[in-house]
Design a protein around this nucleic acid. Structure first.
Lengths: 219, 219
DNA sequence: ATAAGAATCCGTATAAATACGGATAGCGAA
DNA sequence: TTCGCTATCCGTATTTATACGGATTCTTAT
């Protein structure tokens, strides 16, 4: 009798990427695509009736994103291994996700073989970090002398802050945002300050890039 | 005897997306993946020795991007049909690419069947624009009363402007950029003005998003 | 019930971004 | 050559963004 197949969930909002990835994974007989989801909410909905071993989770998604979904998964389904997929080789994102409890980290321009290696690694060892990413993590550990990095940047923005950040990305000035939201310009400034602090940015350029990297822009 | 297969080139810098797309296209027997390229330069290099009918071209790429590659292809290989792939459903990008001579336009979250439909459409009709995109184009035609939209926004930035835009995205202030480049702060301001005009932006938020949409950010 | 923290709000001061004007050098078309 | 166009450069004025200080309300933990 054959070994039991590894049950995979693929979660990504971009249909061509999601279907393409699934198509590539189907070449590997030991893997079984058990769930296909377009975002975190959709994934969690399907997990009510289906069982999986590993989830490939896009970091940048509208709706429940990679970070939020990871938090929920670790809470409700601690046995599921989480592999984060992202376009951005960004130290802050990596550390943030490690802290959230992701089991591995994959860039979207990796080879499919690496993805499959990572799936086996998380099943066998519980985690997967390739050399480049391990280095990032270890350096942070050494610098902070902690097991868990006390990484707080990029922590959840409030509803209001996300709303304002999106308007900033739409090229509105603070004054215009204030008028649209019926609040004082100084209040908008104050929200912008919080956004700067939370995202670890110096100015609007950083805020906008944060929005892009975290899928906060609807297009 | 069977009909000749349609020879396809797939050009995208993200390996997982590129390989995934190829895997999906392989399901269609009438299509043949003749060329796989990571960017425009790589594609043009391979076209010296290989023949193709249709190229699926990513818009956002480091190196020679979708727009530049389209221009070269239309010049050197006018018989090749060009289908642009992008994440961004952005009117300016669509019009820009139509003007450059692309034969069709596809979003990365479309279904693979739509991609294949588009391939057949460009082979048979010479172009493919789905209803939503046709609407965008037609509206522009009506408003400008021209066959070719005199769309100039997003026109090529100069070397210096790209350099400065990238530094802006790295969250440097004008003063800091001036110091690094050994020029006056006012000169940086002047370059920023040109960038604003060319990208059709009002402020840094717009410039940064332009940079993201056009793959100007190295990560 | 109170203390601590976060989200929301506002005013004022300084730093930075943006608008306007203008100069030079190079390049291709007329 | 001369004209027009663009890239590059710089100074000054105005508008916007950012820093700092402080308030109210709400939640949560003690």
């Amino acid at each position: 009798m054959r070994k039991k197949k590894i049950k995979i969930a693929v979660t990504d909002d971009q249909q061509l990427f999601r279907r393409g990835l699934i198509s590539l994974l189907k070449e590997f007989d030991e893997l079984q695509i058990a769930v296909e989801a377009v975002n975190g909410n959709n994934l969690l909905e399907q997990l009510k009736t289906k069982h999986i071993d590993v989830v490939l989770l896009d970091y940048e998604m509208p709706g429940l994103d990679g970070a939020e979904t990871t938090a929920v998964l670790r809470e409700k389904y601690p046995e599921i291994k989480i592999l984060i997929l992202t376009m951005h080789n960004d130290e802050e994102i990596i550390l943030h996700m490690v802290e959230k409890g992701a089991h591995g980290f994959l860039l979207k321009d990796y080879d499919i073989e690496i993805v499959v290696d990572a799936i086996y690694a998380v099943m066998e060892n519980g985690y997967y970090f390739n050399p480049a990413i391990s280095k990032t993590i270890l350096r942070n550990l050494v610098e902070n002398k902690k097991i868990k990095p006390s990484f707080k940047k990029g922590d959840e923005l409030s509803e209001r802050e996300i709303e304002i950040l999106q308007m900033i990305c739409a090229e509105f000035t603070s004054k215009e945002i204030a008028e649209k939201l019926f609040i004082a310009g100084s209040t908008v400034n104050s929200h912008k300050e919080s956004i700067l602090k939370k995202t670890g940015s110096r100015n609007v350029a950083g805020m906008v890039l944060f929005a892009v990297k975290n899928g906060l822009i609807k297009e």
